[in-house]
Amino acid sequence: MFTDLSMTIFSIFAQMSVGAFIVLGVVQVLARTRGGRSAEEIDRLTDPATYAVGVTLVLGLAASIFHLGTPMNAINVLRHVDSSWLSREIAFGLGFAGLGFAFAAMQYFKWGSAQLRQVLAGLTALVGVGLVASMAMIYASLDAVPAWNTWVTPVQFAVTTLLLGSLAVGAAFMGTVMWRRRQMEQAGEEPATDERDLATITASLKGIALASIVLLGAAFVIIPLHLNELSQGGAAAVASAEVFSGAMFALRLALVFLGAGLLGFFVYRFASRTEVNPQPLAVVATVAFGLVFVGEFIGRSMFYESMTRIGM
């Protein structure tokens, strides 16, 4: 278990960052077009989450360094972009980080027009998609590893990206609300959240809850298809499938199911109510994210463990 810890941390954090960035973009677009909110109003809500994306991305990139035997040579990994998916991954990763930080800085200092910032955010999200795609191709392109050399790898990476991204944004929104209320409390004021802000957040959370239930369904279809594919392969494929069994595998499935499914349902229920106290919603959104994060983390760790090669 946890044989490739640095790779597990890097891939999970990087994918969560890309997913969260995309989901924040979707929230922005929908809140403006369907919620009738202004750019400034939504920024107030999404900016803290955007900065959090930067933190998780940096954590992930830092973890990836520990995977290297000779980190001093790290700059060389960009030398083979024309042939190696690993070079491409790092190029996209640095691109996503660079554009993301430029965007975050422009948001923070309100540099440039809102339109310019939107274009930059869109570009950043596209490069993020490139990052997840090249990450998937690193594994999916290896003929020697049957457990990875399948359509399942990119699809599973996409599901993880969006699932963790959605739930992380949900938790970050509620965290922001609760933190601001606490600030008010400490200042001796009656804690309150702007009604229209709360409406935007609950609408977002309802969307996030629905998305996670759909993604959970997708994940639970992909896993048996993958196992079936491996069972029909050669000796290496059959051997690698053995990883996906036992108590840890059951725990991983249970955690993702509880987090995305059951709690998704509660998030939807709570978000549909119009209560003044957002605390129960905050707890549910945070726990849902935590459970799915741990479940996906175990799943990714098993993914690395399933590396059984053909040949000798």
Binding site: H67, L68, G69, N73, N76, V77
Partner: peptide, 17 residues
């Protein structure tokens, strides 16, 4: 050796170890 970063990706790719 001057270029290798020790990422072990080649190890995953080679079916002859």
């Amino acid at each position: 050796d001057d270029l290798c970063v020790g990422c072990r990706y080649c190890e995953w790719a080679c079916p002859y170890s």
